[in-house]
């Protein structure tokens, strides 16, 4: 992407308009990754801005060895891990009722008939909670592969770990998610997996 390289070069020379163009291209990806890592929209909003401020201050360190997006993902991951370490480490608890919402077991039992939006919201909350119970690295690897479609090699580069470790974390993440979300699945492998 020559255009991107040109923008990076100009931004490194202090051209804020070029940096703005880079921000506008990447902001949604960065926000989504921050959201996937924190499970919280407001934290993701703050973190995504922090990421671009950090990126701006470190622009001189970007040599083009990695892709711009991979470099940004790396900064985002570090910011999210710092945030997760400094802020509450309490995982979301899906064993408690979700306020005014309906428990999936009730929905499945047919005691109430939630509309699709509510069901989807509950499922989303439980998926976020299951993601929240993964270790930092499992969550990072799964998120980058599943939601951001990054190849394993680029994930390894973004997280500065080996490709073998990426595969291992991905499998472990999937196994944990499968276990955590088993009550939502209705497939022939369920009884085998549990």
């Amino acid at each position: 992407m020559t255009d991107e390289k040109e923008l990076i070069h100009r931004a490194q020379s202090g051209d804020t308009a070029a940096f703005r163009a880079l921000v506008e291209r990447s902001r949604l990806h960065v926000f989504r990754l921050a959201y996937d890592m924190t499970g919280n929209r407001h934290d993701a909003e703050d973190l995504s801005q922090d990421v671009f401020v950090k990126a701006y201050r470190s622009l001189h360190a970007f040599r083009g060895d990695a892709k711009w997006s991979t470099w940004l993902y790396r900064i985002t991951m570090n910011a999210c891990l710092d945030h997760r370490g400094a802020a509450s480490r309490k995982p979301m608890n899906t064993h408690e009722p979700l306020n005014d919402e309906i428990l999936p077991s009730q929905a499945h039992a047919g005691e109430v008939t939630p509309d699709r939006a509510a069901e989807s919201r509950i499922l989303g909350r439980h998926i976020d909670a299951a993601l929240g119970r993964l270790s930092n690295r499992e969550r990072a690897v799964f998120t980058l592969r599943h939601y951001h479609d990054l190849p394993l090699k680029e994930i390894a580069s973004a997280l500065e770990i080996t490709e073998g470790s990426v595969k291992s974390y991905l499998f472990r993440a999937l196994a944990h998610l499968q276990e955590d979300l088993s009550f939502y699945r209705n497939d022939p492998g369920m009884e085998h997996a549990s």
Partner: peptide
């Protein structure tokens, strides 16, 4: 198949 099903389930998450 169980893993595939989990992967499909994860796609139903909405940000």
């Amino acid at each position: 198949a169980a893993l595939e099903s989990t992967r499909s389930l994860m796609d139903r998450r909405v940000r």
